[in-house]
Amino acid sequence: MHPEHPAPDPGSVLRLADIGEDAPRSLLARFGLMLAPVADGEPIPGSFWGDEEAGIIGTTVYARGDTPVHSLLHEAGHLIVLPAERRAGVHTDATDSVEEEDATCYLQIVLADALPGVGRDRLMADMDAWGYTFRLGSSRAWFERDAENARRFLLDRGLPVDLRG
């Protein structure tokens, strides 16, 4: 965190319950993924971080109403950047390289533009509030000035780098 930025409140991030399941379900389906809702208070299958963080198993993203939207999009992004033949074997941890992790962070920002009431600006603010760290101090600075490798990774695989317009 940069000293000139106040400490953000992770409790203020958008949650799945705030936006509903329909738009995320439709977005994930565009990439051959499924959204599996998890009942309140139940553990989230395939969650790497536990608590309210989204989980992944195969082509399914698991989330509860209290799951942050940024977490849902991040885990979905992990599956999207993987070749289809690798998705089936995924359980909880999908990353095997820094390049994939960077591409996933970039893609989650792009995917936010496809969700009504979310968008990249809100998602980047939520990422910063949650504690994602980037070399330039914020997700926006990274996305706009330091993410060419992630953008190239996505383009080389025919994945979207912008969903606006």
Rank of each mutant, 00 (worst) to 15 (best):
A7R: 13
R151M: 08
D66V: 06
V61P: 02
A36T: 12
P37S: 11
W130A: 14
H74P: 03
H78S: 06
L35H: 04
A125D: 14
G46N: 01
D93P: 09
D102Y: 12
P68M: 00
Y106V: 11
G165F: 11
E85T: 11
V161L: 04
G158R: 02
V98E: 15
F153I: 04
R140G: 03
A103Q: 06
H91Q: 15
E42A: 14
V69F: 01
T60R: 13
S47E: 09
F48Y: 15
E100M: 12
A29N: 10
A7D: 10
A141W: 08
D126E: 00
D22S: 14
L27Q: 03
E21C: 09
D22K: 13
A147L: 05
R30P: 02
H78M: 07
P45W: 02
A94E: 05
A76E: 05
R135E: 14
V98T: 14
I56W: 01
I19L: 06
R86I: 04
H2K: 13
P24Y: 03
I19D: 05
A129E: 04
A84D: 14
V110W: 06
N149C: 10
P3V: 12
A36M: 11
R152E: 07
A150F: 03
D121Q: 12
V110E: 10
R140E: 15
E53M: 11
I57N: 09
P43G: 02
R145V: 05
G55W: 01
V90I: 13
D18P: 01
E4C: 12
S139C: 15
Y106W: 09
M1K: 11
L27H: 00
G58S: 08
L107W: 05
S97D: 10
L72I: 01
E101Q: 10
P37C: 05
D22C: 02
G165W: 12
L159H: 00
R87H: 03
W49P: 08
W49I: 12
G46L: 05
E42P: 00
L163S: 03
W130D: 09
I80W: 09
G165V: 13
Y106S: 05
A39W: 06
G77E: 02
A112Y: 06
M34S: 15
E101H: 14
G32D: 04
V118T: 08
I109T: 15
S138Q: 08
I80D: 04
V81H: 06
R145G: 07
D40G: 10
D40N: 09
D162N: 07
T67W: 08
E100D: 11
E75T: 05
R15T: 09
W130M: 12
R145S: 10
P8C: 06
E148G: 03
L154F: 01
L27V: 02
G65K: 08
